[in-house]
Design a protein around this nucleic acid. Structure first.
Length: 219
DNA sequence: TTGAGGATTCTC
DNA sequence: AGAATCCTCAAA
């Protein structure tokens, strides 16, 4: 149960030492923010911490695959101020968590697709019954949201002030020099935009790199 | 290890 | 109607 904390409430998490990303970090194009969020820490004030290893960019009216493409609708958190969460529901049972970027009214955001848990796993496993190992906890947008308990209540949460007890910290680890870049997953429009980034050879990403050779049985 | 199919509800 | 997905089961 997330406790509603005010903007001035202290934000402390035992095992982590880092600084909150400032508003200006998010007030840039989603295609710039996305790769820079790799290796940052998603943190809840109950001790849940995970390192972001996979992310996608969505670009508002320029992007046929974005929920905001057709203008402002009920799903309108995407049009708000940078640094807020846009949490949406899809496939009848899954939540997806995005961070709003750019300027107010643009409708651009990045989708948090996967993260590697580093603390608070004991709070994640009960929410992820199918998970057998740490890399099952948050290796996908639906899984990540579930492991962190992100749902409708967190739509509109401000990461900069940690209004809902959740934020993103920089603990000093730089983004990877050579992230894997490729097409986004699970969309039907603009499928060729190379707007998905993930840490290379990382076990906690949602879709692993295809195997080098797929031996076929003889005909 | 890989692939196919069902679940289930919100939005347009 | 289709969705920014996940899980289970079957087959090789």
């Amino acid at each position: 149960m997330p406790k509603q904390t005010g903007p001035d409430a202290p934000f402390t998490v035992q095992p982590v030492d880092g600084t909150r990303l400032p508003r200006a970090f998010y007030q840039r194009p989603s295609t710039v923010v996305a790769p820079e969020l790799l290796n940052k820490l998603l943190v809840r004030n109950d001790g849940r911490v995970a390192r972001i290893v996979e992310i996608e960019a969505y670009a508002g009216s320029d992007d046929p695959a974005a929920h905001s493409w057709r203008g402002m609708t009920a799903r309108n958190s995407m049009f708000g101020e940078a640094g807020h969460l846009y949490v949406y529901f899809t496939y009848g049972m899954h939540w997806g968590s995005n961070v709003v970027c750019g300027d107010v009214g643009e409708g651009v955001a990045v989708l948090l697709r996967a993260a590697a848990p580093v603390a608070g796993q004991e709070l994640m496993y009960p929410l992820r019954p199918a998970a057998r190992r740490d890399h099952d906890l948050a290796s996908g947008p639906g899984k990540l949201s579930q492991a962190f308990g992100l749902d409708r209540h967190f739509d509109g949460a401000d990461l900069v002030t940690a209004s809902h007890g959740i934020t993103i910290l920089d603990d000093g680890m730089a983004p990877p020099d050579d992230p894997v870049v490729g097409p986004r997953i699970g969309i039907t429009r603009a499928v060729d935009f190379p707007w998905r980034w993930h840490v290379r050879d990382h076990r906690h990403v949602s879709v692993r790199a295809p195997r080098a050779a797929t031996p076929k049985r003889p005909a």
